[in-house]
Simulated scan of single mutants.
Amino acid sequence: MPMEPNVAVLVDCENAQSAVLDRAMQHATTLGRVALRRAYGNAASLTNKWQDGLIRHGFAPCLQFQYVGGKNTADIALALDALEMLLDRRADQFVIVTSDSDFVGLCRKLQERGAGVHVFGEAKTPAALRHACDRFHEAAPQTIDAPRAMPVAVEDKATNPVKRRPRFVVEAVRVLASSAADGRVDLGALGNHLRQTHAGFTHAANGYKNLRSMLEAYDLLCIHQDDRGHCRVGLASAVPPAAPILRAV
């Protein structure tokens, strides 16, 4: 049996938004085993907006001092580590979170050596970096889902628990289903993915008796059940019209 690819997630904390980290990690898990997680920056960038997310996802912070004003030592440290990971065969796939065009050369070199390169950057990311990787993901963490997919709290009765619909569930379906021919992901695989990428996630903690009932509360998701009772989940807009589906209410 072929070994699962090792994935390295490298974050340029001085040239990226911390809100995109969850999405980058979700995508990384679809590429293989996330074996290396490192974040680069100075003391201010690592401890301000990035700290909570880096701790939650188990990143190793790589603190860089600026020996001369105006010089970005974090970029050099990230590039050196990436090449070392590739040459040591510790990583086959790279997810780089940055909007800095200085990494164009690194992306090209990694590709030349046979590695897959995925970049998560902001709308301002130059075209050179967008085209220097296998796939570019534009970071838009505040607008990726319609308003109804935002976290919502609903009290059906005074005795019932509060029911929530976290937005990251829709994004997880979007990422996992994108690589499937039918645009859907197995219900069990989705549950495992959510527990791995969001510590403490359970359907009960969000007020539902099971994962299926939770997913049925989303207008943006559709559940398809075959004759044997096997369930797969996809985005409502991505489900073929002719397919028998159970639409969320």
Score class of each variant (00 low, 15 high):
Val185Met: 01
Glu112Ser: 09
Ala180Gln: 10
Lys109Trp: 01
Ala115Thr: 04
Gly200Tyr: 07
Arg195Tyr: 01
Ala199Gly: 06
Leu176Gly: 04
His198Cys: 03
Ala158Ser: 06
Val152Thr: 14
Asn206Phe: 08
Glu138Leu: 08
Ala180Thr: 02
Arg174Val: 00
Met214Thr: 06
Ala149Gly: 15
Pro166Tyr: 02
Asn210Arg: 08
His203Cys: 10
Lys109Tyr: 01
Gly188Ile: 07
Gly105Met: 07
Tyr208Leu: 07
Gly105Val: 05
Leu106Cys: 07
Val175Pro: 02
Gly200Val: 06
Asp145Thr: 14
Glu138Val: 11
Arg195Met: 13
Gly116Glu: 10
Ala172Met: 12
Ala123Glu: 14
Ile144Leu: 14
Thr202Tyr: 11
Leu211Lys: 05
Lys109Asn: 09
Lys209Thr: 15
Pro161Glu: 08
Phe201Gly: 06
Arg165Thr: 15
Glu216Tyr: 12
Ala217Leu: 04
Ala205Trp: 07
Leu110Glu: 06
Asp134Glu: 07
Ala127Lys: 14
His203Gln: 13
Ala217Val: 03
Arg165Lys: 13
Pro147Leu: 11
Leu221His: 03
Glu155Leu: 12
Ala115Gly: 11
Arg212Ile: 05
Ala180Gly: 00
Arg148Ser: 12
Gly114Glu: 06
Glu122Arg: 12
Ala199His: 08
Leu221Thr: 04
Asn210His: 12
Val117Pro: 03
Asn210Met: 04
Arg174Leu: 02
Leu129Arg: 12
Val104Thr: 15
Glu171Cys: 02
Lys209His: 13
Ile144Lys: 09
His193Asn: 08
Ala149Thr: 06
Arg174Trp: 02
Thr143Met: 01
